[in-house]
Amino acid sequence: MDGKTQLGDFLQTRRSQLRPADIGVPTYGERRRVPGLRREELALLAGVSTSYYTRLEQGQSPSASPEVLDAIAGALRLDESERRYLHDVAKVDRRRTRGRRPAPERVPDATRQFLDVLGDVPAIVLSRRTDVLAWNRTGHALFAGHLDFGAPELPARRPNMARLVFLDDHVRDLYADWPSKARAVVGNLRVVAARYPEDAALHALLGELSAKSAEFASMWADHRVKACTGADYEMRHPLIGPLTVIQQNMSSGRGPTVVVATTEAGSPSRAALALLAQATGEGAARADLSPDAARPRSQPEPAPNSVAPDRRR
C-alpha cells in the first residue's frame, strides 16, 4: 500500500469523501486544493491535535486508543459497520501478521440439516472468503445454474461468489442493478479482510480480483465498508424471467454463512421460484428419500403371518 498502513489509507480516503458542507464546517468561499476535509479540520472535530492525527494517518503512530478511534469515527460520520472496521484495521497495524493458508472450511452437520429443512427455498453456504461450501438444488439453479452442482464438494473446484459476481458474465447478468450487488460484495470483503488479516487465501483472492477487474479495483480503493445482512435484488433469470428476491445472510459468528433467497407471499416472484424448484426437481429429490419411495410398488409386502400359496401341482 505504498508504505502506508491500512488504518492511514482508510482514514485518508474517508476524510477526502467528507465535504465541509456535510458537517457544517465553514469554508468562507475559499478555493480548496483538495476535496474533502483537511487534516486540521478533522482533528478539531475529533478533539485531537493536528500533529497527532497527521502521524496516525501517515502510519507513524498506529497505537491509537479505542476512545480516540471512536472520536475519529464520530468526526468521519462512520456507521456501526465502518466503526468496527476502523477498530479492526487499527488492531492489524499494531501487530505484524504472517500470512498463512488455512485448511479448507467444512460445512457443519447442523448447517446441512438446515439446508434440508429449507426445501425449495434457494440457499447457499458461503465461507468467509465467499467460497461456495454447499447449496441446495434451487439455490444452485438460482445463483449459478450454469455450474456443476457437485462442485462445492471438492475444495479445489469450489466456486467463489465474489469471483463469479465480477468475472462471470452469467452471474453478472443475473442482477438488474449489478453495481449495487458488486458494492455489497466489496464492502463485505473489506470487513472480512480486517477481521482475518492472516488469511493468505483471502488476500490472494483480493489481489486476483484487483488485477482482473478494474471495477473491483476501483470499488476496493473507495474504502466503503458494509457488512452484508440482507438486501433486495431484482434478478433476471434465464429460465424463469425477472423476479425480486430478498437475500438474507444468516451467520452464527465466525462460521459459514447461509444465504437464503426469499420472496413476498403471493407475488409473481414467489410463483417464479416455485417454478424453478419444480424445474430443478428439488421436490422430487426429497420424495425419493421417503421410506415409501424406496419400497417397490409392483410387489406389495405380504400381510403378517400370511402363508404363501403352494403352487405345486
Score class of each variant (00 low, 15 high):
271 A>Q: 14
255 G>M: 12
257 T>L: 05
238 P>V: 06
261 A>L: 10
251 S>T: 10
265 A>T: 13
252 S>K: 05
247 Q>R: 02
259 V>Q: 03
245 V>C: 03
237 H>V: 03
236 R>I: 05
246 I>T: 10
242 P>S: 03
244 T>M: 06
255 G>D: 09
262 T>V: 14
239 L>I: 04
250 M>G: 01
270 R>D: 13
252 S>G: 03
238 P>F: 10
266 G>I: 11
251 S>M: 07
256 P>D: 05
264 E>H: 15
263 T>S: 13
262 T>M: 14
251 S>K: 07
241 G>L: 00
270 R>F: 10
265 A>F: 14
248 Q>E: 02
246 I>G: 05
273 L>H: 08
252 S>L: 06
271 A>C: 10
269 S>V: 13
262 T>E: 07
241 G>W: 00
249 N>W: 06
256 P>Y: 09
267 S>E: 13
270 R>I: 08
275 L>Y: 07
242 P>I: 02
269 S>N: 13
261 A>Y: 10
271 A>G: 08
238 P>A: 08
241 G>R: 02
273 L>D: 07
262 T>L: 14
250 M>W: 08
249 N>F: 11
270 R>E: 15
274 A>S: 11
266 G>W: 12
257 T>I: 10
251 S>Y: 04
249 N>T: 01
251 S>Q: 08
260 V>R: 05
240 I>C: 06
264 E>V: 15
261 A>S: 15
260 V>G: 06
271 A>H: 13
247 Q>V: 04
255 G>A: 10
252 S>P: 00
241 G>P: 00
242 P>E: 02
247 Q>D: 01
